[in-house]
């Protein structure tokens, strides 16, 4: 038997209470999120704005409580425990989009790295801590380390700050890094360096990666598998190259058709219309039905399940499920 996945998410749901005039209503940010991340694997979470990517990452990092569903880490049920153990915080590290907001302007870069080292007991004594800080800065390509450690966040470029955020995550020797749009605020020439750094961490240190991005090309560049989300549902899962080359779900097809391509002048038409899904009072059936070019009667009545379509691929769409099979379920 294969070992338990590092992260296993099953039917995760998350609702937020939002005010609507005098009433309070439930916003279904996550309805059914199911996927896993194996040790040393890079998985990308893609989908449009508001699809629930960040919410999923925050629930997985236990920064937000889940409303329903299961979350297993290394085989153990983590939601069962109310308090989040420090060891979990160390093993799962988060990196955010805005590297400026996540660093404290009054502290030096060195301080940002010393803190987690001391807090998690990863180094003891001035000399050892300093040496480890320099090692960390070296490992994310920030040189000369001694000089950088003395600088403050505002003295660094966006790309350098994002490298500091990665170094800080590495300080506690995590099993997995959850990176929420880590490169979307960086310029193209800087972005590649950060993508390559993440790729090296995975390949050389075996750190697993959950990369949240809206850029499909970056997803394919970095991730072994890609998970596509729409309106709080996982709608497709598969090896990244296959998902991009031969998408199964109509929503994935739409996303791919929207990627700019240098052939120019909008040669390929969009595969569906725009329009945000309703997360408050969502209609029954498939969440993509209102926009789907292949919508049929059944889609408006019945939410398709996320089902295997081949050995390595899953899709949540009636087009990919034999009627008999799903009628029986």
């Amino acid at each position: 038997m294969s070992p338990a996945p590092l992260i296993e998410v099953r039917g995760l749901g998350k609702t937020f209470a939002v005010r609507d005039g005098l009433r309070t209503r439930a916003l279904h940010a996550l309805t059914d999120v199911t996927f896993e991340v194996h040790r040393g694997e890079a998985v990308a979470l893609v989908g449009e704005s508001g699809s629930g990517k960040s919410t999923a990452a925050r629930v997985i990092a236990r920064l937000l409580p889940a409303s329903s569903g299961e979350l297993r880490f290394d085989g153990a049920d983590v939601l069962a425990r109310r308090r989040v153990p420090l060891s979990f915080r160390a093993r799962v590290q988060l990196i955010f989009q805005d590297p400026f907001a996540s660093l404290n302007p009054v502290h030096t870069i060195g301080y940002h790295l010393e803190r987690p080292l001391l807090r998690h007991g990863k180094a003891r004594g001035r000399a050892a801590v300093a040496a480890r800080v320099h090692e960390l800065l070296d490992s994310v390509g920030l040189a000369p380390a001694a000089e950088l450690a003395r600088k403050h966040p505002h003295q660094l470029s966006g790309g350098q700050r994002q490298r500091v955020a990665i170094a800080r995550a590495l300080a506690v020797a995590p099993d997995v890094i959850l990176a929420d749009e880590p490169t979307s605020m960086l310029d193209a020439s800087i972005r590649v360096g950060v993508l390559n750094l993440l790729r090296d961490l995975k390949e050389q240190r075996g750190i697993a990666l959950l990369l949240i991005t809206h850029d499909l090309a970056s997803a394919r560049y970095l991730a072994d598998r890609t998970v596509v989300m729409y309106a709080g549902h996982v709608v497709e899962v598969g090896p990244s190259a296959l998902v991009m080359a031969a998408p199964l779900h109509p929503y994935t097809r739409l996303l791919i058709s929207a990627v700019p391509d240098a052939r120019g002048s909008f040669a390929t038409p969009l595969a569906a219309r725009g329009g945000a899904p309703r997360l408050i009072d969502p209609p029954p059936g498939c969440p993509f039905a209102a926009r789907c070019p292949e919508v049929h009667d059944r889609c408006r009545r019945e939410l398709p399940a996320l089902r295997p379509v081949s050995v390595s691929r899953l899709a949540r769409c009636h087009l990919h499920q034999p009627a008999a099979l799903s009628a029986a379920s």
Binding site: Q160, S189, V192, L195, N196, L216, A217, S218, Y221
Partner: peptide, 22 residues
Amino acid sequence: LLGCFPELHGAATRLVGIGGTP
């Protein structure tokens, strides 16, 4: 700069990017 954009299709060869910063 043209070499800084990962491709959606084809070989996922390592990008070189541009060293340094503006």
